[in-house]
Amino acid sequence: MTAIASTLPDWNPLSLWYSDGWTVTKRNLIKIKRSPDMLVFAVIQPIMFVVLFSQVYAGAIQVQGTDYVQFLMAGIFAQTVVFGATFSGAAMAQDLKEGIIDRFRSLPMSASAVLIGRTNSDLVLNTISMVIMMATGLAVGWRVNSTVPEFLAGVGLLLLFGYAFSWVMALLGMSVKSPEVINNASFLILFPLTFISNAFVPSETLPTPLRIFAEFNPVSSLVQAARQLFGNEGSAPVPDIWTMQNPILTVLIGVAVMLIVFVPLCIRKFASISSR
């Protein structure tokens, strides 16, 4: 056998962290490329949502000061990035099931690399979905009525929220250990979270208990922030609560909280999981 130096290069922790994270990200991206079902899901679903909602509900839902397509798009963007985070959970559960996590954990790699690779590749997938949705939106009449920096800030905010949320789902995925369970469980969480919000209808039209939920729902703040940044607000009154009056700040705080809480939890969980 060929001899391989057992004294390995003495890399500093930061470059190790970066290089390990990138190695795993690349592995996940190859997976996406090779399993078209995932890519098709990420591409087709947003197109379907944009077309269905804009064509089916546009005639029936009245939004003050703007037409429904303008109102709708930020909602669909938010829904897509939130749903996209499910991939992180399902993929962690799948990796555990296949035993590759044991391989990773027996290598001298950085402790967070697998999670960073996971959430990074989902960020890429979300970005692809976002571009496709925006193109579809433009085709059905959506227009951005803001400056380029505002528009980019809006896109960034949506992706950032999706990124932070994938850490939450990754923890869930490592906890339930079954891709099927995570898919079912996340739909139980994600449908209420995205539909009981201002994403598809103005929240003031909802019955009181649901309206209160919708107004405090972080997804509502995300949608509101995106609407502001894309200039799609219309003239409907914004609920008089702090989180809805300051949606951008609320989203940034939400992202920070999710990362501060769930990144360490995920890394701790990862250090103790084993496939079988």
């Binding site: 390995l8 290089s19 190695t23 690349k26 592995r27 590759i100 290598l107 001298p108």
Partner: peptide, 20 residues
């Protein structure tokens, strides 16, 4: 414990990179 979607070569290269 191999990645199904990666080739044999890619699996081994990945492991080598993760051994630094």
């Amino acid at each position: 414990a191999v990645d199904e979607n990666l080739t044999g070569f890619e699996n081994l290269e990945m492991v080598g990179r993760l051994y630094h």
